[in-house]
Design a protein around this nucleic acid. Structure first.
Lengths: 112, 112
DNA sequence: TCGTATTACCTAAGACTCCAATGTATTTGA
DNA sequence: TCAAATACATTGGAGTCTTAGGTAATACGA
């Protein structure tokens, strides 16, 4: 598990990217996907996930759709056009920031 | 200039790494070095730098030494042994986190 | 020599982001 | 049948950085 401070600022980027790749997803599914992609090393907590999803929705980057699964109601989130362009932007920003950090820390740009 | 949220959690790592590479530095010098290494794209503000330096000192990672330059007094910071090992650890953590982020965002691990 | 930019230190109030804890309820499977 | 997993959500607080402010010495061009 990583030092949690580093995650700050990346949560929105992760969520937007996952939705860009997968079309629509519901909250719990996002947590599982992040866990899987990170080999268990990132664990989104619900206390950070749901407020962030609601915030992104309020900003017009996401829309929701409710789906009934028997008695249970699932809430799917998907990108609006604004959300799609923001996703692209955030990923670019992240890559640029990484380049800068590698320069400042004078690390090799090759991670593997 | 990068979105400031991304910087969160990396400030201590940057400071410790610079001190590991340069022996001793004073506050203003650190801001200039970061600016230089990042091609002007990172600008440490004093409001974040000095509290962080003081915190690292309080935690025993740094020590200080005052140097008189005429009437002006410069405060040099340098790593303690604990600071040195923490620096190494923080850089490793950062690299590991980057690898994870690249996996989660499904980006190429080659930045250049 | 006067004023501005730069060097150099610092603090305080607040914003923002995330986490831990807590709550509710359904479904799956041993 | 009952614990674990699925699935949603909120609240209070902790931590980190920014904005804005303050002080003072030095360098340099007009």
């Amino acid at each position: 598990m990583h030092s949690p401070e580093l995650l700050k600022g990346t949560l929105q980027t992760i969520i937007l990217k996952l939705l860009a790749d997968n079309g629509k997803m519901y909250g719990y599914e996002i947590t599982q996907k992040v866990k899987e992609l990170s080999d268990e090393s990132l664990q989104l907590t619900e206390g950070s996930l749901y407020p962030t999803l609601h915030k992104l929705e309020a900003e017009g980057l996401l829309k929701t759709e409710k789906m009934s699964m028997g008695k249970r109601v699932r809430k799917y989130y998907f990108l609006t056009p604004l959300g799609t362009s923001t996703a692209i932007q955030k990923i670019q920003d992240f890559e640029a920031f990484m380049k800068t950090m590698f320069q400042v820390l004078q690390l090799s740009t090759k991670l593997a």
